[in-house]
């Protein structure tokens, strides 16, 4: 689906067409945000919760969105990412693990069938991604699956473009190594 962010922003800023703009926003980003969240938290129920929470935060903060219309996608992803990170941090607190090592635990959920893993190669690939440190994992997912530019990834993650490039490069290397084991 092609998203006209400029049109969405324009409609949201018109009080009489605001609901139309928000509907378009929901249509455009529900699926991409869900898959982004699912890749982060693995379990469907957690991704569903995070998605609902993200939408509420987006609706509450949309009046404060002052960026250019091409930054709308990154802005929504940033809110969703922070919501998912909060969920993961809670999980870490309960299990006394760090955000970097929570991936190993999430990998176990793919094995247990919680994530409905039908294909071995795809499962292995996800485990490879989940074995990455948190920052590399996030940058890799945004670049590989969401095909974001480094500029957008930088807006989502809050790290510099050059650091995003470095993180993606290392993540690619590590995923390759993992898959060739």
């Amino acid at each position: 689906m092609r998203v006209d962010s400029a049109e969405i922003v324009r409609l949201i800023n018109l009080p009489e067409r605001r609901s139309e703009g928000l509907s378009l926003l929901v249509e455009a980003y529900t699926e991409p945000l869900y898959w982004h969240l699912r890749r982060m938290v693995v379990v469907h129920e957690d991704a569903e919760d995070a998605l609902q929470e993200s939408w509420l935060k987006i609706f509450a903060a949309i009046d404060h969105f002052r960026g250019e219309s091409d930054g709308l996608k990154a802005w929504c992803y940033r809110i969703a990412t922070n919501t998912a990170l909060d969920k993961l941090r809670k999980r870490c607190r309960w299990r006394w693990v760090t955000l970097d090592s929570v991936g190993a635990e999430l990998s176990g959920l793919i094995d247990r069938g919680d994530a409905n893993s039908p294909e071995e190669l795809e499962s292995m690939f996800q485990k490879a991604i989940l074995s990455l440190p948190a920052k590399q994992r996030l940058v890799f997912n945004l670049r590989y699956y969401d095909e974001m530019e480094y500029r957008e990834i930088s807006q989502v993650t809050g790290i510099s473009e050059s650091a995003c490039k470095t993180n993606y490069h290392y993540a690619q290397q590590r995923v390759k190594e993992f898959m060739m084991r």
Binding site: S19, L22, S23, L25, V26, E27, T30, Y34, E48, L51, Q52, W55, L56, F59, A60
Partner: peptide, 12 residues
């Protein structure tokens, strides 16, 4: 999920 989100946005 879209219906739920739209309903939440309408309330908003």
């Amino acid at each position: 999920a879209k219906a739920q989100a739209k309903s939440a946005s309408a309330k908003r």
